[in-house]
Design a protein around this nucleic acid. Sequence first.
DNA 1: TGGCAAATGACAGTTGATGTCAGTATGCTA
DNA 2: TAGCATACTGACATCAACTGTCATTTGCCA
Lengths: 216, 216
Amino acid sequence: MIRAPGLRERKKLQTRHNLEEAALRLFARQGFDATTVEDIAAEVEVSPRTFFRYFASKEDVLLTDDEALRDGLLAALRDRPSDEPILSAIHGAVRIVAARYEEIRNRLFLVYRLMTETPSLESHSLGLQAAWVSALAAEVGRRLGQDPGELAPRLVARAALSCLHSAAEVWFATQGRAHLPDLVDQAFATLSTGLAELPAPRARPGVRPRPSGERR
Amino acid sequence: MIRAPGLRERKKLQTRHNLEEAALRLFARQGFDATTVEDIAAEVEVSPRTFFRYFASKEDVLLTDDEALRDGLLAALRDRPSDEPILSAIHGAVRIVAARYEEIRNRLFLVYRLMTETPSLESHSLGLQAAWVSALAAEVGRRLGQDPGELAPRLVARAALSCLHSAAEVWFATQGRAHLPDLVDQAFATLSTGLAELPAPRARPGVRPRPSGERR
DNA sequence: TGGCAAATGACAGTTGATGTCAGTATGCTA
DNA sequence: TAGCATACTGACATCAACTGTCATTTGCCA
């Protein structure tokens, strides 16, 4: 409603931003568990109580990108023509999100590193996936003309996110040397055409029959 | 090789079982957050410290089925003939796990109810999914003759689990009125043959619009 | 039966997270 | 511009999940 942000609003954003930056810095230096909320608050010269007014938990401070990425996916999907086949539309939307991943790769790599060495963080992060599934299933259901609680929309949503996540896993594992949007393309190509045809190896492992390793 | 479990072992199993039962009972009655570890321990007449010797966290006491179900899936998959196409093999294995779900449905329904009303529990539970993905990807990689860290094995694993999870979601949503193995069959059928063909309300030229006989 | 190792209880301490309350800065309104 | 209501903040108190330590108990086995 009000155009001018106002000093109060600006201060809040600044404090929030400072907390994020300080947390990232401390986590990167000394790990997640070894960093207390008191440390972070002290770094920003704020009381620990205030930290929890900005973030519901110590974990949350690391996951601020999540919501933006999710909204980006939904927006990108809504931008696709409504008569486009569902898998193609999602593929396009996911590729846009993947490009966004590349833009903030440094931050994501740090978060990923912390996640792998801190089980509680991993749980917390994966917990957010449920929100992705629900949001995506709702949009898929809309496009398919089905209730989002039906099997097909939920399956499509989960399968599409599987593409994003498996691509991201490989991306992280290769230190980002692979190009994430390319990996996403590979994943969707495999999903849409090759999944049922992936053969068991006739011969001994070592001769890879026809791996889906090539770009489409 | 020793058949006799011994009194000490039996007591340990008994204590563990008692803790599980007491926790389930208290959680069902008064919710997860409102139940303290001290409550549970008192119910079994054991010190709170002992609780944490059996379970790494309060959440863990609810997730003892998880490992058994996961091992069941892997065992079922290993039982499939090694030249069976991968998706078919996984389908068969997942159906067996689904049947197991049906057997312990009461417990699963309780856990599911608690999960939906307790975010921290949901996170914790979803965190275990990573273990499913890794374990399944390892087996898939073995069958495909690929490294489990490659894109294809991870994608196949995630996609297959998407079938199980979306089916389970519908199962829970319908209070278990639908038969889970049937839902799993539907999901795999959609995944292997129908995903790319799921039309938008109006399919784009080049893709033959499919009369919605697949609706089932 | 006596000694060993495992299991347990008791206790103190750390940390994340939340409620309360009073002081203060901000933005709105007269 | 003055003043008031609101929202933000810090200090303090409290709770519960966990963890380390050590003495005690209990099953096990020679």
